[in-house]
Design a protein around this nucleic acid. Sequence first.
DNA 1: GACAAATTAAAACAATTGTTTTAAACATCT
DNA 2: AGATGTTTAAAACAATTGTTTTAATTTGTC
Lengths: 237, 237
Amino acid sequence: MNRHKISVSETRQRLLVSAGEVFAEQGFYNTTVRDICRRAGVNIAAVNYYFHSKEELYDAVCTHSLDLAVNKYSPTLGITEGTAAQERLHTFIRSLLFSILEKGQPFWHEKLVTREMNNPTMALDSMVETTIKPRNKLLSSIVKDFLGKGASEELIRQCCLSIIGQCLHYHYAQPVIQRLYPKQKFSAEGIETIADHVTRFSLYALQQFKPRGKQIMECRADHSMAAIRRGKNSSKH
Amino acid sequence: MNRHKISVSETRQRLLVSAGEVFAEQGFYNTTVRDICRRAGVNIAAVNYYFHSKEELYDAVCTHSLDLAVNKYSPTLGITEGTAAQERLHTFIRSLLFSILEKGQPFWHEKLVTREMNNPTMALDSMVETTIKPRNKLLSSIVKDFLGKGASEELIRQCCLSIIGQCLHYHYAQPVIQRLYPKQKFSAEGIETIADHVTRFSLYALQQFKPRGKQIMECRADHSMAAIRRGKNSSKH
DNA sequence: GACAAATTAAAACAATTGTTTTAAACATCT
DNA sequence: AGATGTTTAAAACAATTGTTTTAATTTGTC
């Protein structure tokens, strides 16, 4: 009977994978269960047999991809307390960009989240709690390091939105970016370049927002990014 | 007979208005012709009578709203050659933000374009030519003023994307911004505040990108934005 | 091998979509 | 007023969606 549920029927897993692929790519509303089943090589009825509906399948995909995300590819990764602020910023931006622009299962969740931000389903509320708020908190702490104690909550929030906005734009506007700049590459190499720019752009701005004082000199510092770049892929073609 | 086509049946106009409203709000795919007709107080068959299909109705809305946009509310408005670079930047950002965040007929077109950028239909290609490319060219020229002659095409492009990205984020991520910051207002007053921040943020970054030289002092200048603010609504509550 | 449960397959269902048909209502002109 | 062309209204159509039903097949256990 149901003594040992070994291999919860590979069909279920196949559905989960195919659904993750399509949902991350096209979003909830633009995806049909027939498409999912076709890719999974599975009968249509399977989605209602294993999950009870398209919605619950989507929920399953969300929690499953969240598991993958937090366990293996959290944007917090490598950002410790001790790290210098500008490097923490760079790491944050880099991870975010990779997770929304790179293809592949590990990055499904961020794509789902990014879609939800723009085109919500019933899953958004939980995503706000599990993913967006923590991510925002992390970025806020980084921004705070730049702006200092005196910075208002509003300014911090606005700067966070400016940074996130720059990143997500490459995801949201991908169709038109491809047309405007056909040479724009979204390979790993290309994403690194984008990350470098966004970091530099934001760094420059943040440094200027800092209250008047000693940083007048250091804000001019161009070696800030150089220091970040060094040791990664300093010689890129 | 068809000697003088007076008053092309108010129904057609009602359809055009309702369709513009709904398309701008929900995009092409999420809009049903039944919804459009209901709002217009018109029979379903009317859309196929006056326009031949949902697609052609959408096309009509696009060209009609483009007319309104270029004739009355072009983002070029007020940006002349002589104006100071930072004021041109502020004007550009302000107009863009207003046209995607404010409600109302005059701003339909930018909302349609913004939707197309993310979720293309057959209309995107023409929009790229008529709206996006010109707008990009304008912003590029402004950015160039900041970066100077020596700036590479790639840097200019990246900075433009950073600026546009910051603005459109407020449109794209509106559902989640509302949840994260319930106090965020998108009234005219609120939009002005956003425009001020995005301008300042971008200004600071651009100034730092400028090749080394005289601007070391002036980049620190906080009065740049103050000068812009002055004369608009210098005392806001 | 036989029986029971779990899984798969095919077909059908109900709801929604854009579109078309059909006829009624209206307007215009002689 | 009556004929003619234009516009509206109601209903039906075909295609697509998520879901369910029904029966066939496979799997596990004795």
